[in-house]
Structure formats: C-alpha cells, structure tokens
Design a binder for these strands. Structure first.
Lengths: 338, 338
DNA sequence: CTGAAAGCGCTTACAG
DNA sequence: CTGAAAGCGCTTACAG
C-alpha cells in the first residue's frame, strides 16, 4: 500500500493525498474526507524512508552514550532520565534511535551516523570520559543536548543537576546534626561527576566556615561498592576518622558502611554517611541510606523540550540546572534538625 | 555529499560506486581502490533512507515493551537483556529503534509502525499483560522474538528462562537445608511470570515428595516491596508459618524479610527466604538475599541470533530456554549443603 | 568490467 | 482547489 494506490482509490492525484496527510489547508472538505476515509480503511502508513528522503527530516532522535560503553542501559540514573526523555519526545512526535557501537572499528563516528540516519537531533549522555567524536558532533549543525555533559556548540545545550546545591544540602544537613569534621569518598580523578561533587563539597565546607582536612578526602577506583569499602578501610587504618562522610555515589557509601561495620564502628553513631543518587538499594540496607536524589524525570523532560526548540530554531541552546533533594533516612541519625 | 558527487570525483558512474559500496566482485581492483580512497577522504556515508527506499531493508530492529508502559527502561531485568541484545545486534550490523507510545491515541499499532520504518525485525519484551496489537505483529510476516513472551507466529520465536528449573533449584536448596514446609509469595493472578514461577514451584514440591499447603501460598498486588511486606504480614497473623519461603521477586522477598524482622522473627533461623532476579540490592541487605539469577546476557545474545536467522530465513523460529543459577547468600543459612 | 535508466514512495514548487 | 512533473539518493536488472 502506498500513496499512489490511495490516490487511485480516491480518484485524486498523489499531490492531493500528500497535502491531506500533511494538513495543508487548501483542500476541499469533501475530497479530504473521502481520502481520509480510505486511509482509515486501508490502514495506510506512509513510508518514513521516502518521506525522509524527500524532506531531509526523519523525526528521529539519536541517543548516544559517551564513553564507557559497557554501562549504557544498565546505568540506573541515565536510564531513568532517558525514560522520561523518551516519553516527552514521543509526545512531540519523535522516535528514538540507538546507535550500536560495535558495528565499525571506529565506532565513535557519531557525526556521520547522524547524517546516515538524518536524525533531527541527538541526546548525549555522559559516561566517564569524553570522546573526541562527541566534540565533532557538538560543533556540527546537528542539534544536541547533553545530559550531565556541558555541550557548548552553537546548536547545543545541556541539562544537569546542581552539584553545588547537592554539596551544600549535604553540608547543611551534617552541620545541623552537629558535625564539624567532614570527609569525602570519591571516584578517580578523571571522573567529571566525582570531581564536580567534590569541588562543590569543598566550597560548601568553606561556605559554612568549617575547616577542610585533606586527610579525610579519599578516592576509590570507580563508583562501585568495593571501592567504597577499600577507601573507607584505608581511612580507618589511618587512625584519624571524620564524624561524617559524603560519598559521591550510593554504592561508595554502602561500601564505606560495610567497612565501618566490620571494624565494629556504628553508623550513624560513630560516623554519619550520606550517599548520592538514591538508587533502589538505599531503602533496603541497614541502616537505610540518607542520600541525594536528582529529579531525573525533570531532567528528561527538560532535555526533550530544549532539543525540540533547538530543532525548530526556537532557541539558541543554553542550559538548565535542576535542583536536587536530600532524602533523609537512617544513616545520619535523627539529630537536631528534626 | 552523495553518491553522484563521489562518482563524478572518481570519474565513474553511480552504478559502479554503488557496487563498490556493496562489495560486488565484478569491479576492477584499480577503480575500486580509487573510489574507496575518495570515500575515505570525503567521509561519505550513504543515506539510510535512500537505501531503505530502494531495498526495503532498513537494518533497523524495533524494540517494543508490551504492556505496562511506565516500566520500560527502568525495569532492571529487561534493561540488562536489552543491553546484551543491543551489543549483539550491533555486531550483526543492526541498529535499534524504540517506538514512542505517546504519539498516537491508538499507540499500540505496532504493525503499521513497523511498516512505516521498514524495520527488519522486532524484539518484544514482556510486561504484565499482552496487548492484542502484539498478536497482530506476531501473526504478521515481520520477524519477531519475544523475551519472556511466548510468540508462536510463523516468523516468530522466543527466549525465556526455565521456570521449572528455577523452582526445582529453589526446592532442592530448601530440601538439602532440611526444610519440608515450603511457602510462596507471588504477584497477582494476571501476572504470567508469577504464575509460571508458582506452577514450577508446585510441581517441584510434588517432585520432591513434599506436601504442599495452600495456606502458605500468598499473593501481593505486584512485584514490589510493600506487597511482600503485606503478604508476609498476613501469613504471620495467620499464626501458621512455613519454614522456608520462595518469593517470585527479590523485592517481594525483601518486603517479607522486613515483616519478619518487625515481628521479632529471624531470617534465616526462623524462616529461610529465597528471592528471584538477583537485583543489585540483594548484596547489600541484611541478611544478604539468596536468590535466582537469570543469565540475562545469554538471553540477549540468543534473542539477537534468533532474530538474525529469522530475518535471513535461516530458521523457522522456535524457542530457547536458558538455565538459571542459584546464588547462595545469607537468607537461608549455611545448613547442610555446604 | 562499466554505465544508462527505471524505480523505490514520498514532497514541493508551479501551472492551471 | 487540483494535478503533472521534477527531485530526494540510492539499487538493480540489463545492455554493452
């Protein structure tokens, strides 16, 4: 079934059918109804490839995970952002295409793959490190939105959550609970996200007039639980413990809790812990974990609207920063603030 | 940049360039090299829409989540299956397209959307219930693979994990630990997955010559933690507790653990618990949760290969069942089996 | 081994 | 308000 057959069945030209399908106004109500009926009956759907070829518009958004390919769908944070992004893009009339990375040896040639599929825009989700191929895309004419990734091209924008606010909510919570000796567990030095969280934390500590002790700042090899365990263990063995620790991820925090418990130390009585991300496990551990939750749904919706505006030349890019929330559970005790 | 320009630059015809790009053998080594060099230099990528229009092949696989739209990406099991599916499909030369469901009021018209995009095949991931639109697809000429969904069409196949094996591993573990009084916590009666697990469990209990007590079989409203808590609470209040309980999901199991602890009962001393799925949280709870892990990577890889064969008429469909593994942690104690 | 030409199914000025 | 025709960028018999 194609547009030609529909035209024949309705006794009109192909042009007329096309106009009707695209909501042109200069068609008589009568022919319009007749054609629409036939389309309805036959279940005709126009071919996207023919349409894309003719218009250079695909109504397709490319989804790219920058860096660390093996995380992708299994990363809980991005998966939730993506979920709300997908819903919102769907409402706006777009579908999503995921580039497979294993097809070419030089898998990162995102720009030419965007041309290949004629995607109308891209959402780029930040992994550990930034590939050069991402910069090529950022600088191109293709609209791009970064998630937790600062894109600065002319047709680019980004959304991220406010890392300074994250840190200042954490420090404020510790402060109100009476803690003045604050430590930190982060990932490696090449992790943007860990660095941003640490920088925000350091400046929040200064903002509250507290003294920062570099001894209490330790780092693991990644964001996972064993790294938190190892980092906390080394801190314990140093013999000099802070009263409260902020970890750059929930799994780092849970690893730290395990190390503390193994040494007979109590959470929160001996050391208070706050994690970051609010993964599912936080609710089921003992103690349950106080953490920071990012508004993933809002990040996804914002990303979708920004991309839509960029595609339709309604905006010049820019960025949105979303406010995080502190989720109070057991790992800091109830203290003064309640 | 298009094929015509490449042809001009190389001083050959468009046909010749096309043949070279598609690895036809009847081209001289000399022209081939010249054209390939120019393609390399210009970074030319052929347009997928033009190619699809000409060949009726898109190298695109449609991904569909059947039922319960709001789960989608955030479902940990399917997300991992999908991740490995995507990788494998990428190796085979396909990209993935996700249909947005919000675009049309009648969002479930998957068949016409497949035609619209000329997808070469579909992977359909099972949610709670089965929409009629899925059956339409299953019966169509479009190759489809179901994940945990029994597709029976001529061009369809499916992968799932072996629910009888899951159950018999659970019963065997309980049995070797000395437990003879076995209970079950499931989801609602309209959940295929819960039903299959329950049926397998019942038959495994019979297989070990044990007596099944219907009083010990309870059900929540879904697969989440509060349902497990509620179901376990009702069991506790009945005053008649089994010695061991298998839950149809890890979250149901964790809810049950919470209910038991609140009543001063100990896990595993008073009641042993086994969950299902091996979600991340199982490792961090106390006690850590013994559970069943499905080989999600293998399910994804198998789904990809089956779909590929279906697309290329190398197979007639059929199904694969993947063996699950029992992951022993603390929630059943160490007992006799170790 | 190479190329001219028709065709895939749409859209879009343009003429009427 | 309607339609004929060119064009989008490929592939594929077919002729040479």
């Amino acid at each position: 079934m194609n547009i030609k057959k529909i035209a024949e069945m309705a006794g009109v030209s192909v042009s007329t059918v096309s106009k009707i399908m695209n909501n042109y106004s200069d068609v008589s109500e009568k022919t319009k109804r007749r054609v629409l009926d036939i389309i309805e009956q036959t279940g005709y759907t126009p071919s996207s490839s023919a349409k894309t070829l003719a218009t250079k518009k695909s109504n397709l958004i490319g989804v790219i995970f920058a860096g660390e390919l093996n995380v992708e769908f299994t990363h809980p944070f991005f998966v939730e952002v993506l979920n709300s992004f997908k819903k919102q893009m769907g409402v706006l009339g777009y579908d999503l295409i995921f580039f497979s990375n294993e097809k070419f040896i030089n898998s990162g040639d995102y720009y030419s793959r965007c041309l290949h599929f004629h995607v109308d825009g891209c959402v780029i989700i930040s992994g550990q490190q930034m590939e050069p191929a991402i910069q090529e895309l950022d600088r191109s004419h293709i609209p791009c939105i970064g998630v937790d990734l600062e894109l600065t091209g002319k047709k680019s924008g980004y959304v991220m959550s406010d890392n300074y606010q994250i840190a200042s909510k954490v420090v404020e919570h510790f402060y109100l609970l009476g803690h003045r000796e604050l430590g930190f567990i982060g990932s490696t030095a090449d992790s943007d996200i860990s660095n941003r969280r640490e920088a925000g934390y350091v400046s929040a500590i200064a903002g509250f007039g507290l003294v920062m002790n570099p001894q209490w700042f330790v780092h693991g090899d990644d964001f996972f639980e064993p790294s938190g365990y190892a980092a906390m263990s080394s801190l314990i063995h140093s013999g000099d413990l802070p009263k409260a620790i902020f970890a750059a991820s929930d799994l780092l925090a849970l690893g730290a809790v395990r190390a503390l418990k193994e040494q007979g130390l109590r959470v929160p009585e001996d050391v208070a812990i706050i994690g970051c991300d609010d993964i599912e496990a936080c609710q089921y551990t003992s103690p349950t974990l106080t953490t920071i939750r990012q508004n993933k749904e809002r990040l996804g919706v914002l990303a979708a609207h920004m991309l839509f505006d960029l595609i339709n030349n309604q905006s010049e890019g820019g960025s949105f920063v979303v406010e995080p929330a502190l989720i109070v559970r057991e790992s800091c005790g109830s203290g003064l603030s309640r």
